[in-house]
Amino acid sequence: MNASPRDPAAPAVSLVIGSGSVKCAAAIGVVKALTEEGIAVERFVGCSAGAIFAAVLALGYGAQESMDATRRLWTSDITAKRNTMGMLRALAPRLFGFKVESFGLRDDRPKDQMLNAFFGDRRIEDAGTPLHITATDFANGELVDLDRGSIADAIRASVALPFAFAPVRLGGKLLVDGYLADPLPVSVAIKHGGRVIIAVGFESPYQERIGSAGRFAFQLSAIMSNNLLKSRFSFHSVAHHSEVIAIIPEFRQRIRLFDTEKLPYIVEEGEACMRAQIPYLRELLAADRAAVAS
């Protein structure tokens, strides 16, 4: 499925979808609201789970199709199998040998098979709308903007959550989850000339109870990623010459990692947040076009 060519005269925004597991499906509702209001997306940027939704939407999937895609791509099967050798290598590196490129406590294969089955050999540059998927360079922590190549491979890198999944070698670099560089990579849209940017972001949930080393690690990760989210977003907000509209759905229902049965609710919340901004967005886009034309 490919998006129909965008009318270059139509009002358009850049859409950045941050990390946030299944909550990123709120972006489906955001695009639904924009589409129904005749506002196009001129560029998609996606990070971590947000990369999956950025890719699906950039390929032109509608709201219902995107939800169906989510149910296929985001299931507990992707983390269901342990990587026994990974665990042994973590516990006894001298005995089993520690290899960075294969270190993860979960078996990558179910996730990779799912991504390959869905996206096949489709490439980023084939998307109807420019698409950017972000990952993190494991060597130096820098954000890597993947704007060409296999969509499935780029998403594999973008969702390579440390400790859970192994890093991914791509383009000569070893890549890990994009959230480590920036959980909401507005910078990519700014760098590519985005003027009006819609940023759909989520804070990582804090653990209610911590009864294991894994939960302890999740809590530390949430603290660091939320602080990184705030520091990066604040910089981008003050650095950008035009406008960044933050869409931060506040879910009243608790959304767990694989709560795909709550997809309709998540999408509705994203749509409602976007619809609340439509009157302002219309005025803003009209003023922006007038400023560019003058």
Binding site: S234, H236, S237, V238, S242, E243, V244, I245, A246, Y280
Partner: peptide, 12 residues
């Protein structure tokens, strides 16, 4: 009722 990046820059 709402503030965006441009509003934040004005406050800052």
């Amino acid at each position: 009722s709402y503030t965006s990046s441009a509003g934040l820059r004005s406050v800052l």
